[in-house]
Simulated assay, not measured.
Amino acid sequence: MTPGRSPVGQVTRGTTGTNRLRRVDRWIARHPALRRAADPLVVDLGFGASAVTALELAARLARVRPDVEVLGLEIDPQRVARARSQLSQVRAGTTGFAADTRVSFALGGFEVPTPEHRRPAVIRAMNVLRQYDEPDVRGAWQRMAATLATDGLLVEGTCDELGRVCTWIAIGPDAAPRTLTVALRLAGLERPSIAAERLPKALIHRNVPGERVHDLLRALDDEWDRAASVAAFGPVQRWEAALGALRNGGWPVRDRSRWRLGELTVPWSAVAPG
């Protein structure tokens, strides 16, 4: 970061936890923005009170890109210092992470400062914008997206404390949202519309009659209820049946190969605020 300048953004609650972001991590791991990147730099923006999510991100992405580098950014200097202390333990080989894990931590916010002004292939900004007002979202997207590589991707969203309910928006370098993904733990799932509680800031106040995202969640609940007849075969089969019916009903549901993971992805146009 440029000396004398403060990071752009507000300090978050910093809540984090082991495996909390596993669903979005595995989605990023298969995305072309990472797999085809000339420079596989990934930024974990607003990593929180612990280094764990950045370390987990690096471990998961290294399975498909062994040369991946993860840079954790926080606007709270104490959190950066704590993360660096935790990283020193990793380097000493006293944790479950590889001692040579390609992770570093620095002070930064929506301006996304990187060493030598490198352009990230992916920026993951989870649970960062929840405390902001909806009109502030676009400006944050624009700041972050402006730093991306030409084919880079910003992933911005929200999840619950255990990572069982997770939603995120994929955003291009032009700051235009491309898709919405909902990822749920299917075991014990009562109704898919539980995702409404964890929608990204751009959508969470739009879950009202007359808005597309409300229509999607209502239709998903309806198909989930209708698929109860296959529940005996397991929640995955029920989910796949519900999404199949949703698509047959005209919803542009994508990535069928990902359905078994409890994911639902639709183009942004299907849920964009009216």
Score class of each variant (00 low, 15 high):
65 R>F: 02
268 W>K: 13
31 H>T: 01
154 L>V: 01
92 A>H: 01
185 R>E: 14
55 L>G: 04
119 R>Y: 02
188 G>N: 06
167 T>H: 10
45 L>Y: 04
85 S>Q: 13
84 R>M: 11
33 A>Q: 03
269 S>G: 15
106 A>R: 13
11 V>R: 15
121 A>I: 09
268 W>Q: 13
253 V>H: 11
251 W>G: 06
196 A>G: 10
247 R>T: 14
139 G>T: 13
70 V>Y: 00
123 I>V: 15
65 R>N: 03
33 A>Y: 02
242 A>V: 07
187 A>S: 14
203 L>I: 05
263 E>N: 05
25 D>F: 01
98 A>T: 03
174 D>I: 07
258 R>D: 15
124 R>N: 00
59 A>Q: 04
161 E>I: 09
138 R>Q: 15
155 V>H: 01
62 A>Q: 04
51 A>H: 02
197 E>K: 06
45 L>R: 02
3 P>W: 07
273 P>I: 13
143 R>E: 09
164 R>A: 11
106 A>K: 02
6 S>N: 12
5 R>L: 14
155 V>D: 02
267 P>H: 03
86 Q>T: 13
63 R>H: 04
154 L>W: 00
172 G>D: 06
47 F>L: 08
123 I>W: 11
234 G>F: 06
252 P>V: 06
143 R>S: 11
121 A>Q: 07
129 L>Q: 08
208 V>Y: 12
51 A>I: 03
97 F>D: 00
78 Q>E: 14
179 T>H: 08
8 V>P: 09
88 S>K: 09
172 G>E: 05
142 Q>L: 01
214 H>M: 03
15 T>L: 14
38 A>I: 04
117 H>V: 08
95 T>A: 03
127 N>F: 11
36 R>N: 15
272 A>Q: 12
135 P>K: 12
105 F>N: 08
83 A>P: 10
139 G>M: 07
229 S>I: 15
61 L>Q: 00
146 A>D: 10
24 V>W: 00
45 L>F: 02
265 T>S: 13
125 A>L: 10
182 V>N: 10
126 M>V: 09
193 S>K: 14
166 C>W: 04
91 R>H: 08
76 D>H: 08
109 G>F: 09
231 A>H: 12
205 H>M: 09
166 C>K: 02
82 R>T: 15
105 F>P: 05
236 V>N: 04
110 F>H: 12
183 A>N: 07
59 A>K: 01
85 S>H: 11
20 R>Y: 01
109 G>T: 06
135 P>I: 15
192 P>F: 10
112 V>T: 13
57 L>Y: 00
145 A>F: 14
124 R>Y: 00
164 R>K: 12
212 R>F: 05
143 R>C: 05
47 F>V: 06
163 G>N: 09
207 N>F: 11
159 C>L: 06
215 D>Y: 07
217 L>P: 15
127 N>D: 15
140 A>I: 03
174 D>R: 14
245 A>N: 12
133 D>V: 11
